[in-house]
């Protein structure tokens, strides 16, 4: 009969509507309060009804493999031996494998010998070209470039802010352990320890310290698994670039500063440092 389909459709809409509210009743109308833990049910397979993620008050967290623009891993700023050292050895594999060719690397040379040293002098990613494919992270042999989870990158001006340079790309290793704990562990296992590949090699060459090192790593790993990495306050004095604090773990998400809300002075300081480096390089080239 004419009209039956129409009525049925309306009833369907009604059912979805009611279902959504039944769910609200179940949770005592605590739909949007920040500390309800029904999110998992609502966004899982068992949910009935239609639920909206109340961005920006609540956000769907990203899975570990999530990829947005890449970042460069540097050693923790409170690392006892190599604070803030780049993991990247400027081997250039990521620049070669990048499909739209948006990675630019300047390899640094030792001023005395002229031989390349394993640290990039400059590293740029044009995020107006980057297709977030993740190849750079996948093929980097040193685990030095990783896909970031921070998608809140909108800006008013692309000419000044959309080519990310090394300062802007660098984030502590700690940060990677925070955003992708399991992958970090897997990678560490593949490397044979938490430290950078080369550092481990050097340590092994250094003598019998390797065993104790491995012990230490294992101990730390266990600790890691017990408790998500808490954000440690960063030693600002060690390096001006230390302004990038790691994102806080879930447990502390209430209090911590976000990595990108640097204070003006820090940003200014970073800018000056970068400019000075640039100028130095420019004069060198001339």
């Amino acid at each position: 009969m004419n009209g039956i389909g129409f009525i049925k459709g309306m009833l369907l809409t009604l059912r979805h509507f009611v279902e959504s509210y039944v769910d609200d009743v179940r949770y005592g109308f605590k739909k949007y309060s920040p500390n309800v833990d029904n999110f998992q049910q609502r966004q899982g397979t068992q949910a009935a009804g239609v639920f909206t993620v109340q961005y920006p008050d609540e956000k769907v967290a990203m899975p570990e493999r999530f990829r947005f623009v890449p970042f460069l891993v540097v050693e923790d700023y409170d690392h006892p031996e190599r604070p803030g050292k780049d993991w990247c050895t400027s081997c250039g594999i990521c620049a070669k494998v990048c499909p739209p060719q948006c990675i630019w690397i300047v390899r640094s040379n030792d001023p005395a010998t002229g031989r390349p040293v394993p640290e990039p002098e400059a590293f740029f990613i044009d995020i107006d070209i980057c297709m977030n494919c993740g190849f750079c992270a996948e093929y980097c042999p040193f685990d030095a470039i990783k896909m970031d989870h921070d998608y809140e990158l909108a800006s008013y001006d692309r000419t000044t802010s959309h080519i990310f340079d090394k300062d802007k790309l660098s984030k502590e290793f700690k940060y990677w352990k925070t955003i992708a704990p399991n992958r970090a562990i897997d990678e560490a296992q593949a490397r044979g320890g938490w430290e950078h590949k080369d550092a481990q090699k050097a340590a092994r060459r250094g003598g019998g310290a390797a065993d104790s090192k491995r012990e230490e790593v294992r101990a730390r790993k266990e600790e890691e698994q017990k408790q998500p990495v808490a954000s440690a306050p960063v030693a600002q004095e060690t390096k001006p670039a230390a302004a990038e604090t790691p994102a806080p773990a879930a447990a502390t998400s209430g209090g911590g500063e976000k990595p990108w809300t640097d204070s003006e002075e820090e940003r200014e300081r970073r800018k000056q440092a970068a400019l000075a480096r640039k100028a130095a390089r420019a004069s060198k080239r001339e």
């Binding site: 340079d165 300062d167 302004a243 940003r267 970068a274 400019l275």
Partner: peptide
């Protein structure tokens, strides 16, 4: 102006 930091 790649060197311009613009966090935030």
């Amino acid at each position: 102006a790649a060197s311009l930091p613009s966090g935030g």
